[in-house]
């Protein structure tokens, strides 16, 4: 080794030697190691004291109470600036005729008032409010290619409008039709459970607006919340449970025709 060192002339110093290469390798490896150390442990506590790890928001709909007034839809649009032609929540009217035919419609125009039904062949009819199910295993954020669709720790499925590229994959993936591409922002949009309200202790706009208390909202981590009590006492059904999305919108009094 010493012989080699002696032999190194001044001209050789500029040449690439193994030693130099190894040094460079070591430094680079060290730098990489620094880069890949995990970030600071995440905390859920916001500056205003809202701790999302202490809540788990859920939703229930008592279809036997709904009168189809669409106050929920109007409130949602006023609260969230939902553009014309798209809906974060809506109410479906099911009409089952005497011959067993199922007719479904929704009030999408004219101030969202349901038209009177024509014909007297209806054997059974009811309203079914629909909303994002905020699934525990939501399909929509699994397919998002840019990480714009996500679930918060408190169980709300949201869209990050800054990340969303508007590819519409999530819109297709959602089995409940809860998502749409916002014609103004050109990004995916959906029910947020009024995240800006519920994290301040308010009810979602649709729940507050419902004159019949057909929409029930609450914290499933709080055993005394209205929702928890209701889910303990009542029998409920989920929409498309066979898809394994684990929806968190619980339907009371839902008939078998409803999909």
């Amino acid at each position: 080794m010493t012989d080699r060192k002696k032999n190194e002339s001044a001209a050789d110093r500029s040449a690439i030697t193994r030693r130099k290469v190894l040094k460079a390798m070591g430094i680079t490896s060290g730098l990489l190691l620094v880069r890949c150390t995990p970030a600071a442990p995440p905390t859920g506590q916001a500056s205003d004291g809202y701790d999302w790890s202490k809540h788990y928001w859920g939703y229930a709909i008592d279809t036997e109470k709904c009168i189809g007034c669409n106050a929920c839809m109007r409130a949602c649009r006023a609260e969230n600036d939902v553009p014309e032609g798209v809906f974060r929540t809506w109410v479906e009217r099911y009409e089952i005729t005497k011959s067993g035919e199922v007719r479904v419609d929704a009030a999408t125009h004219d101030n969202f008032v349901f038209a009177e039904t024509k014909g007297d062949d209806v054997a059974q009819a009811f309203f079914v409010p629909k909303i994002c199910n905020h699934c525990e295993k939501s399909v929509c954020n699994q397919v998002c290619p840019v990480g714009a669709a996500y679930r918060t720790v408190d169980g709300v499925v949201l869209v990050d409008p800054e990340q969303c590229v508007g590819c519409g994959y999530c819109v297709q993936a959602c089995p409940y039709g809860s998502r749409f591409i916002n014609p103004k922002t050109h990004t995916a949009d959906k029910c947020t459970l009024c995240y800006h309200r519920i994290t301040k202790g308010l009810l979602p706009a649709c729940v507050q607006a419902c004159p019949r208390e057909a929409r029930i909202f609450g914290d499933m981590k709080d055993p005394k919340s209205k929702l928890s009590m209701l889910l303990r006492q009542k029998r409920f059904r989920l929409l498309k449970p066979e898809l394994g999305t684990h929806p968190k919108c619980y339907y009371l009094g839902l008939d078998r025709e409803v999909v």
Binding site: E79, A148, E162, L203, Q208
Partner: peptide, 28 residues
């Protein structure tokens, strides 16, 4: 990749905070 991406999962951590910013319009 934005700064807070991956903070809580495969999404931008700050987005959840931004979603809370809006002022409620229905006051009860």
């Amino acid at each position: 990749v934005p700064e807070t991406f991956g903070q809580f999962g495969h999404f931008r951590g700050a987005a959840a905070t931004e979603a809370r910013v809006k002022t409620p319009r229905h006051l009860g």
